[in-house]
């Protein structure tokens, strides 16, 4: 049986990798979104680990909610990226600083 502490340590390491990805990749908005995906996966791992440890279905239900939330977020953000790339011809985050054109 897998101890809960090891699952949580794995989730902590995965979350920090995603955090480093978000902090580093300012020049490419797609890599930044990948970092957010990694962090959300770490959160899902914590939910599923807790659900397996205490034997309830709640954690799995909430990881399903996270998946639905992520798919909504990704579809909307990628549509936004396509729109901004059409206007500015770049994916650099620092170029999208102003709201109006």
């Amino acid at each position: 049986m897998i101890p809960l502490a090891h699952v949580l340590i794995l989730a902590a390491l995965l979350f920090c990798l995603g955090l480093v990805c978000v902090l580093v990749w300012k020049s490419n908005v797609i890599m930044l979104l990948i970092g957010i995906e990694i962090m959300l996966n770490a959160a899902m791992l914590v939910f599923v680990g807790g659900s397996g440890h205490w034997g309830g279905a709640d954690g799995q239900v909430f990881s399903l909610m996270i998946m639905a939330m992520t798919s909504a977020e990704v579809s909307l953000t990628l549509a936004l990226v396509v729109y901004l790339h059409r206007r500015r011809k770049t994916v650099d985050v620092d170029d999208f600083a102003s709201l109006k054109d």
Partner: peptide
């Protein structure tokens, strides 16, 4: 971790749909 449903959803939604959407964009 005793969550076969979430494993299936992870493969179908994340590795399938979301990553294909990324590649498409």
């Amino acid at each position: 971790l005793a969550a076969p449903m979430i494993a299936a959803f992870e493969v179908i939604i994340y590795a399938g749909a979301v990553m294909v959407l990324f590649l498409f964009v």
